[in-house]
Design a protein around this nucleic acid. Structure first.
Lengths: 126, 126, 126, 126
DNA sequence: GTGGTCTAGACCACG
DNA sequence: GTGGTCTAGACCACC
């Protein structure tokens, strides 16, 4: 399971970890029933404290994406769904798109980038 | 200048203000050379702390979007561009797209939402 | 003996098993002197670890609800009673009631729900 | 704001704190818009680490009961509502009722206790 | 001065 | 051996 963390980012590390795992779930690299590595293993790989990883796992569990079984690890849930409303999810999208356009990319270029990202997201997925 | 703030959001208020102003610049509602309202005025309108708005303006200045003229307020810069690299801007986009797909929206639906948002962004723009 | 476990719940599985058995004792479905199925049998039925069921049985024994006869399984005790004080038992009740009211159910609705649950509890009981 | 913690209980301290605050909200002792004491103040009063209190506040925020404003403290939300379904809330009630009956209290006595608790819950409420 | 995050390390609960 | 909880203390983000 490959996760990259940006130490410089102002996004909290635990949030970045959660986002990366979401990406892997969406992309099919972590299909339902997959056992995730232990918090201590991920912590070791990333060089962060295990509590930081535990916070990420906790967030994913609260969002219904993982089942964390005390004593036997975490697995990806079969029926995933983000509980947040579409309107809530539009806000970060809107912000990301605005920043791209501010950087000087015209509408068609932005759409191209979006298509690229969508393709990368589901690359591994059957 | 119409800005909306979500008190419940975990995104810092100053960040929300900065994002909203970026949106208005992209949309052409704040064309180059436009004078922005004073920090105190915005703070009063939104009912937030003076320093919060000041932080938002400082961020926009650091990103090269505003010119703050000593004693006479801030104006939108002529040649705007977000200084961050494309790769840096892809991360929040990727995250936003992944969340939409996790919510169960298929690729075509996500693209549709993206087009809607892009259209809304440049609505006021000639 | 029908027991249901919620894998997603944050209540430990052994605790859920113990709670379910208590419910069956209260309801009269497991009258005094009834022999309980063996730990291994319950574990197999529920698809949980052997030790998990053993922990549940141990808890019930410690609370004086079961008699574990060396080598011959567990039986329901004749004169059952939870050893904990009334004050100790009020706390979870209070918490459960507060959550129901927070969910917007008025006092009379909560009382109705309580009556329903009490009736369900003793359904099988003569 | 009076909160009592049972050090012996197996319910986590942060959970107990959250439950107590819910009780105070239901009872009207913490009406909407009330500012809660700071995490450090509560931590000092209860003799626990401030992180423990912060975890409780976080849980309440995620359940939509508090608005935590970074830098200016937490306030009780106007429109509270527990997002969990009625069925989910019935389980702890069922468990609490079963334990009371196991302790030898007949149905009418249990109902009496429930009424007492409901009355205590809303004591301070107008 | 507020809450948020992260670390380090101990101990417990669970399966 | 897993995750959960709690502590202690540091530093940062925010208002």
């Amino acid at each position: 399971m490959h996760i990259t963390i940006d130490e410089e980012s102002r996004v909290p590390i635990y949030q970045q970890i959660a986002n990366e795992i979401k990406r892997l779930i969406v992309g099919g690299e972590l299909p339902p029933e997959t056992a995730l590595p232990t918090v201590r293993q991920v912590a070791g790989d990333l060089g962060v404290n295990f509590n930081t990883v535990a916070t990420a796992y906790r967030e994913l569990q609260e969002e219904g994406l993982l089942t964390v079984r005390h004593g036997s690890g975490a697995v990806v849930r079969g029926r995933q769904s983000d509980r947040r409303s579409l309107e809530e999810l539009r806000v970060p999208l809107r912000t990301a798109l605005a920043q791209l356009m501010l950087a000087g990319h015209p509408r068609t270029a932005v759409l191209h980038i979006v298509r690229e990202e969508l393709t990368k997201l589901v690359k591994g997925k059957k």
